[in-house]
C-alpha cells in the first residue's frame, strides 16, 4: 500500500503512515475546519491496511499537543479500528506522547486504554 505523508499545516498535524513498515505517526496540532474531510481518506486507507494484517506488529506514534472536539471524534474512530486489529491477533503498540504540564492529553490517552484494552498503551512524556 502506498504510504501517506502529509506535512503539518497551521491546523493539521504531520501525518506519516508508512503501511509497509507498519508504522503510523501523527505529530502536531489538529483543528481543521472539517475533521471528517481531513481524516476521511486517512481512516479509509488505514482500515484497508489493517484488514490485510495477520499476526503482525503495528507501531503507532501519536504526538499531538492539541486536538479540537471534532478531531477527537475522528481519533477515537482510528483507535477503535486499531483495537479491532489487535483483537484479530495483531499486536498494536501505541506510543502516546503527552506534556506533563497538561493533563488533558494524558487523560484522553488513559481513556483510550480503558476503552481499547487490546492496544498496548505506552505513555511517553514529551521532552520540552
Amino acid at each position: 500500500m502506498e504510504k501517506i505523508h502529509l506535512p503539518a499545516t497551521s491546523n493539521t498535524p504531520e501525518v506519516d503512515f508508512d503501511f509497509q513498515a507498519r508504522r503510523l505517526m501523527l505529530r502536531g496540532e489538529s483543528y481543521p475546519e472539517s475533521a471528517a474531510a481531513f481524516y476521511g481518506d486517512i481512516l479509509e486507507s488505514t482500515r484497508e491496511f489493517l484488514a490485510g494484517l495477520v499476526e503482525q506488529d503495528v507501531i503507532v506514534e501519536v504526538q499531538l499537543t492539541y486536538f479540537n472536539s471534532s478531531s477527537t471524534k475522528m481519533l477515537f474512530g482510528l483507535f477503535e479500528m486499531l483495537n479491532q486489529a489487535a483483537q484479530a491477533g495483531n499486536r498494536v503498540h501505541l506510543h502516546w506522547y503527552y506534556d506533563s504540564e497538561d493533563e488533558t492529553i494524558l487523560e484522553f490517552g488513559l481513556e483510550l486504554r480503558e476503552d481499547f484494552p487490546d492496544i498496548e498503551f505506552l505513555p511517553r512524556e514529551l521532552e520540552v
Binding site: S34, A35, A36, N68, S69, S70, T72, K73, F76, D115
Partner: peptide, 15 residues
C-alpha cells in the same frame, strides 16, 4: 465520543 455523529452536526456535538 462513543456515539454516532448526529446527521446535522458538522462537528461531533462535542464542542
Amino acid at each position: 465520543l462513543r456515539d454516532d455523529v448526529p446527521e446535522q452536526s458538522k462537528g461531533a456535538g462535542l464542542g
